[in-house]
């Protein structure tokens, strides 16, 4: 994979000012922070995952996620498995131990992981915005409760509580899992927004709005919120990563939704069926690769957003 970060500078010979031609061109261009290469690459990678889910459903038979869709433990195209069978185009990425088609599993599973992450993060974010504004803007007793609450909850690892939950309840749906994860990802946006609101509260334009008799809701959401957008985006993306990591963690432990294909579940099945020892690398390798692409995409988006909100980080 090309790394946009490493490829950016030193393309042309430097001129008298010590800047390369590319950098000079960059300086002359109107500065639109959102046209950030990292951001674009990251969004592109995530769109790739979504495209896999959408196009896959059109061009591939996703009913093959069910047991017995093909012979078990088939290798991908062009690779021979331990029994000397060469993979066929009927199952381009091979099959698992119960004959599920791995390509179909990935087409259904990859968007599911993304869905859990985005949903959990959206809910967590909404809670965070609400609590963060309340704590920072209203202050007093409410601030104390919210601050201590988020301090407490931030030290409890979500995975463990979810394990306890799941051991008691058994099967859960993707949406329930997302809601449960959301209960543990509201703390960092709450803290972030509280800190920002506290420093913003005393700024001129907020004072101005207050003196003009604007309502608390108007000041919070129309005056202050727009200024927080880059931070909110950054926090949102970081939370999507955390949520997906938690969800995949649950799935790899064999918990999480039992009837819906997810990437973590595929890896769980692979480890449990001895895919590592039997050298069936495609079984766990391809879902791992997809997850890695997803996480790298999210990381690039986050780095890009950092540069959007903090001009000091930008390069020429």
């Amino acid at each position: 994979m090309t790394e946009p970060n490493a490829a950016a500078p030193e393309t042309a010979a430097p001129d008298a000012t010590g800047l390369s031609k590319r950098q000079v061109r960059r300086m002359k261009r109107f500065d639109n922070p959102w046209r950030n290469p990292k951001l674009i690459w990251g969004v592109g990678l995530l769109l790739g995952i979504i495209a896999l889910g959408l196009l896959g459903r059109i061009f591939w038979d996703t009913d093959m996620v069910f047991t017995g869709s093909g012979l078990p433990r088939q290798a991908p195209v062009g690779i021979e498995n331990m029994r000397g069978q060469v993979g066929s185009w009927a199952h381009p990425l091979g099959t698992d131990v119960t004959g599920k088609d791995i390509l179909a599993l990935l087409i259904v599973g990859a968007p599911n992981s993304l869905y859990v992450g985005v949903l959990a993060s959206l809910i967590g974010m909404s809670i965070g915005i609400f609590l963060g504004f309340s704590a920072g803007f209203i202050g007093g007793r409410i601030d104390d409760v919210i601050r201590v609450g988020s301090d407490v909850m931030i030290t409890i690892p979500p995975l463990l509580i979810l394990v306890v939950f799941q051991a008691a309840y058994g099967d859960i749906s993707l949406t329930i899992m997302a809601i449960l994860i959301a209960c543990f990802v509201w703390q960092s946006p709450t803290r972030l927004i509280r800190a920002q609101v506290l420093s913003m509260r005393e700024s001129g334009y907020v004072q101005m709005a207050r003196l003009s008799g604007a309502s608390t809701g108007h000041i919070m959401f129309r005056e202050m919120l727009p200024n927080l957008v880059p931070y909110l985006f950054g926090s949102f993306i970081a939370n999507v990563t955390t949520s997906i990591v938690t969800a995949v963690g649950l799935e790899v432990l064999g918990l999480g939704p039992q009837r819906v294909p997810t990437l973590g579940r595929v890896i769980y099945d692979a480890i449990n069926s001895g895919a590592l020892i039997q050298n069936l690398w495609w079984w766990w390798g391809v879902p791992t690769l997809l997850l890695a692409v997803m996480f790298i995409g999210l990381l690039l988006i986050n780095l890009g957003l950092d540069e959007v909100s903090n001009p000091r980080l930008r390069r020429l």
Partner: peptide
Amino acid sequence: KAAIPVAMVFTSVPPILSGLLLMYVFST
């Protein structure tokens, strides 16, 4: 300076995935 951002690619991956990869390469 060029190598460090490239190394960052690994860091967005959960430890279980890196564990699987390292296990595959160095153990099996």
